[in-house]
Structure formats: structure tokens, C-alpha cells
């Protein structure tokens, strides 16, 4: 009985969490502009969505910036994590605190500070500034994904590689990087997801003509309801779902291999903690 009550409670919370999304998705197939009424099934909004120049170009921008910023952030962040892992004392603490700064700062503060910088330095707001901003807020998450992997490493692996004749550079490429690859990939995916999800920082650091999906959705939603957004939501949600499944399957497979213990759920929480600057 108690167990039943407990379960019902969780289902109720799930209903609260999923209902808006479900409604959004269902109404993306509704052949009526008024949301309350069901006017029959249609794919009209999807067709219109793909014919909408603004949305399509912002989709392109989002993908381009997502992929580029994720890759650059992953490179810089991975190298940084290795450096941080090998530094000590004050240096390490200082760098770690600066790393946490954009994670803990309200997004809007990061956003306006970057905007001030770009305007101050006379960089035209647009693709470049968006990219720089996205790389900036992505790097810390890459570092935070890679560092735990480095800590798990046997601390003699690097020395073992040197011992077997590798130069330091070879040891890095042939041993350290492959050993922490799971963390690097997690960081890459996380950076990509955060980038396509970002609104606040993009909103402040973009300029005339360049718009990401989030910004486009915002300006459309501000003008009221638009079924094309529903169609877009459905596609994006499905996409994110697929991405999540891929990540989870990957993790599950790794756990089977026994490389990182059983931390799947914890890891989700962590990458998810990471997302909290959302508003």
C-alpha cells in the first residue's frame, strides 16, 4: 500500500515533467492553429518548418558552432586537464578556481562580461564572437569530464611508456590520450549538447544576422505560439533522446569492459549538474 502510494507519487511527478513535452509533440501534428482543438493529423508544420529560411539558417549556425566549439574546447580542455593533473599547490588551486568560475557564475553574468569584452575590443558581434563564447563556457566542462579519468589512471602509466622507450610526446599520444579517451568523448558530447542548448550566452554575444536555434525560438515564442516551434521541439527532443541513448549505451558497454566501475548513473548526474546554469 505504502509502496503503491510512493510509486504513484513518482508517476505524478513524471506526469508533471513529461506532460508539457508530450502536448508539444502531439500538437506538432495538429491541423489547427488553435491549440485547444484537435483539427486532424498533419505534417504541414514540419513542411513549413523546413521551408522557413530563418529556422534553417539558425539550425545550420547551431550545428556549426556546436561542432566547432565542442572540438576546439575538447582539445584545449583535454590538454588543460593533463596540465592541471600534473601541477601542484597554489598554481593548481588557482587554475581550478578559475575553471569553476564560469560553471558557478550565473550565465547572464558570463554573457554580459563576454559581450563587454567583445565590444570593448572592437570585435564585430557575430559568428566569431559566438564561437569564442561557446568555446569559453565549454572548456570547463571538458576539463571536469577528463580530470576524473586522469585521477583513475595508474600514476605510473606515463613512466611505463617512457621506460619502454617513448619520448614524452609519444607517451602522451600513445598512452595517456588513449587511456582517457572515454572521458574525452564524454566531454566532447557534453560540450556539443551544452552548445546547442545554450541561449543566454548566445543571446548576448551574437550580432546582426547571426542567430542560433535557441535565439530564433526565443524571438518566435515572444511573439506568441507558433506550431512550427512544436514541430521543431519534436525533432530536437527526438534528436537529444537519440544522443542520450548513444551516450548511455557507450557507457554501459564500457562498464561491461570494467574500465570505469559502475558509475553510469552518477555520471549522468554529474554531466547534468553541469547543465545547471540553464536559466
Amino acid at each position: 500500500m505504502v509502496r503503491f502510494l510512493k510509486r504513484s507519487y513518482i508517476y505524478l511527478v513524471f506526469a508533471f515533467l513529461y506532460m508539457p513535452i508530450a502536448v508539444l509533440m502531439v500538437y506538432s501534428f495538429n491541423d489547427s492553429r488553435s491549440r485547444g482543438v484537435w483539427g486532424g493529423f498533419t505534417l504541414r508544420w514540419y513542411v513549413e518548418l523546413f521551408q522557413d529560411r530563418t529556422i534553417m539558417s539558425s539550425l545550420y549556425s547551431t550545428m556549426f558552432i556546436g561542432v566547432t566549439s565542442a572540438i576546439i574546447a575538447t582539445i584545449i580542455g583535454t590538454l588543460a586537464a593533463i596540465g592541471i593533473h600534473n601541477s601542484r599547490g597554489i598554481q593548481k588551486r588557482l587554475i581550478m578556481n578559475i575553471t569553476y568560475l564560469p560553471v558557478l557564475n550565473p550565465e547572464i553574468v558570463t554573457a554580459i562580461s563576454l559581450m563587454i569584452l567583445f565590444v570593448f575590443a572592437n570585435v564585430r558581434l557575430g559568428y566569431l564572437t559566438l564561437l569564442l563564447a561557446h568555446i569559453t563556457f565549454n572548456i570547463p566542462y571538458v576539463i571536469l569530464s577528463v580530470l576524473p579519468k586522469l585521477r583513475q589512471l595508474n600514476k605510473h602509466l606515463y613512466e611505463a611508456a617512457l621506460d619502454l622507450g617513448s619520448t614524452p610526446v609519444q607517451a602522451l599520444w600513445k598512452v595517456i590520450i588513449p587511456e582517457i579517451m572515454p572521458g574525452i568523448i564524454t566531454g566532447l558530447l557534453l560540450a556539443f549538447t551544452l552548445s546547442i542548448d545554450d541561449f543566454v550566452i548566445s543571446f548576448f554575444t551574437t550580432g546582426s544576422g547571426v542567430s542560433t536555434l535557441s535565439i530564433t525560438i526565443y524571438s518566435m515564442a515572444r511573439r506568441g505560439i507558433n506550431p512550427k516551434i512544436n514541430a521543431l521541439s519534436t525533432i530536437m527532443f527526438t534528436f537529444v533522446l537519440l544522443l542520450l541513448i548513444v551516450v548511455n549505451v557507450r557507457q554501459a558497454r564500457e562498464e561491461k569492459k570494467g574500465r570505469n566501475g559502475r558509475h553510469g548513473s552518477k555520471k549522468q548526474i554529474r554531466s547534468f549538474d553541469a547543465k545547471f546554469g540553464d536559466a
Binding site: H156, A160, L162, D163, E179, M181, R259
Partner: peptide, 17 residues
């Protein structure tokens, strides 16, 4: 890497990849 000496490390330090 320039010494003609090799080491068996305390916890083996095998390359798990």
C-alpha cells in the same frame, strides 16, 4: 627512454587500452 634499463612497476601499470 634513453636508458638500457626496464622496469616492472609496483602495480604493473599495464596499458588498459
Amino acid at each position: 627512454y634513453k636508458r638500457r634499463v626496464n622496469t616492472v612497476f609496483q602495480r604493473y601499470a599495464l596499458f588498459s587500452h
